[in-house]
Design a protein around this nucleic acid. Structure first.
Lengths: 336, 336
DNA sequence: GCTCCCTCAGAATACGATTTCTATTATAGC
DNA sequence: GCTATAATAGAAATCGTATTCTGAGGGAGC
């Protein structure tokens, strides 16, 4: 059943294999009667071309690679990635592409992913998530001229195509909101310090302070890994200093929630004595008590734009704005 | 740089292309001096074989397909899938396989996935998640003799390889726990009615009732989609009947939490008047108030076993137990 | 009526690796 | 010293499709 090839179809339809290929590719050079004859046989036998042979011949696999720069353990349970992956799959399917997912297993294997996916030509292009401020992977991809799109930003190289959430603007908006609603000592808990997203949101936070004429105080800044425990200890640190913050902007919902729990544990009342805002507007936000105000990142839009840009690159079209920014919005709940 | 082929290596090393291939495949038939000569050139130029050509020639893509039988919207934000995907990627990487993810975009495209991934031989095998009690996809895969493993169960066909969480046992354990701790009217809110997992957990629930000599009451059973709103309305339904339940076992954490919120909204005290238990032990459980008791499903183990079985099937080894069961454990928190 | 061009389909080649087949050389055995 | 047998490497075929090259046939133009 599956050992059908174009030659078989050709034999049964009484034509050459080349003609079968032409019919399937919709080549206009083929006569109507012959086209119908071939299509009838194709339909009847349920023939489908072999993607492996097509890949070799056309030098295209129609496969996109998604490389997540995180160890699997750090990825587990993160609702951001469910949404991202589902959205990219949906979008790439529209263009007849499939998605191959890879993660950084170890530092060593991070390099290996590039060997495996890229050098082997297993995928036609890559979508990268979570870049660092100086990222060797990106430098290398540029050098090799391989099609890729970054979800995030990479300033050092102009030619890099990227789609980013408006992190600076969103952090500004959230901080501004906190300050407008009477908070005086807004703290920021970022993610790992090397990440671009950590830096960008810090920038937005600083911009808002400046707009309100408030000085930047490094004692109100913390960093955390992508887990609750780390966020809680960052929060504990902030609470130890005086003056204690009366608001916290967390890099993502899990970090904000880890911090919020720590504050609760210290007996601080939320939102009366301290406010919290997170990022991603994940399902978590609605369930916690008090419910968490969060910046909704439009993940499907990021995925859609990144996928479209990547496919454009692959197919030789130059994406017009090389850097796109997707706006975010603040979803207000009880915590702030 | 990337236009390196074996012939080029061969030319530079002064050997035939066949020899280069043999060296790279570790063929023992090749003389040591020659092997070193070839490897030196390979190292120097950083040659990596073209996966597309290998796929065609060897009839293997070294790609596994993960097909999730859910629309992207239903997948978004679900921490179960982040963990599942991360675990499968990690495990398949150990065997030099990559992962291609697909979802059911629409009913129509569900069929298309099979055309696209399977008939085109784009992947070597499939991992299916979330089966229905009578599943045409599975019947078809069996007929075609295509290697696949189900995460879940499929009773109608003995030959189906599957790895399942011990749903019956786990639901028994959770229900038994509720009954032992003095609950009298335990309710169950399943997922969509057609899913095997919904049925299995209902079975475990019934078994526990029976073990405690309690009659089965259909008024204590509800069904929900995979979102909070649907769960809340199922819960509202249960609360309308009298006697109202004093405990609820939800099919997953999001469903249990949706139900819990509805109960709160009705002013019922938790866990005093009503207890809640969910499934998956997702990060959510720790954050809500009261924290949610949940059955921890060992997703990495499911992923690991499924991946190993699938690779065995692909490589022609018969997996010894065709059906594996992974035990679950109850993580007790405040809600029950 | 002849040439020219156009349309269309078959033959042949290419994609880059793996593997079978074949040939060469060296070694052993007598 | 001659044949039989390994050991080893090159030549050639193969995987299934896409595409270029080639040629056959028909219609238009003079």
């Amino acid at each position: 059943m599956a050992e059908l090839k174009q030659v078989e179809i050709a034999r049964l339809a009484g034509v050459s294999q080349a003609t079968v290929s032409r019919v399937l590719k919709g080549d206009p050079q083929v006569n109507e009667a012959m086209r119908e004859r071939v299509l009838a046989v194709v339909q009847e036998l349920g023939y489908v071309p072999d993607a492996r042979a097509q890949s070799l011949r056309s030098q295209r696999t129609r496969l996109l690679g998604l490389v997540v720069h995180r160890a699997p353990a750090a990825l587990a349970g993160d609702p951001f990635f469910s949404t991202l992956i589902a959205s990219i799959v949906e979008q790439s399917g529209r263009y007849d592409y499939h998605l191959c997912v890879d993660t950084a297993r170890t530092a060593r294997s991070q390099r290996a992913i590039y060997e495996e996916l890229l050098r082997t030509r297993r995928v036609d292009g890559l979508i990268l998530v979570e870049s660092e401020t100086h990222d060797k992977r990106i430098e290398r991809l540029c050098r090799e001229g391989f099609p890729f799109v970054l979800i995030g930003r990479y300033d050092p190289i102009d030619a890099v195509c990227s789609v980013d959430n408006d992190n600076i603007g969103a952090a500004f908006m959230a901080t501004d909101y906190l300050l407008r609603t009477g908070r005086q000592r807004v703290a920021y808990i970022g993610g790992p310090a090397g990440l671009t997203v950590t830096r960008d949101r810090l920038q937005g936070y600083k911009n808002a302070l400046e707009a309100h004429g408030i000085g930047y105080n490094p004692c109100l800044i913390g960093f955390s890994e992508f887990n609750e425990r780390s966020a809680a200890s960052a929060m504990a640190e902030l609470l130890n200093h005086s003056p204690a913050p009366d608001a916290v902007l967390g890099l993502d919902d899990r970090i904000a929630l880890g911090a919020m729990r720590e504050a609760k544990r210290h007996g601080v009342r939320i939102p009366d004595e301290i406010a919290f805002i997170g990022f991603n507007d994940s399902p978590l936000c609605n369930y916690v008590e008090p419910s968490l105000t969060s910046v909704a990142v439009d993940i499907p839009a990021l995925a859609r734009k990144a996928t479209e840009m990547l496919i454009a690159l692959i197919e030789g079209r130059e994406p017009h704005p090389k850097r796109q920014i997707v706006p975010a919005r603040l979803v207000k709940r009880e915590s702030a």
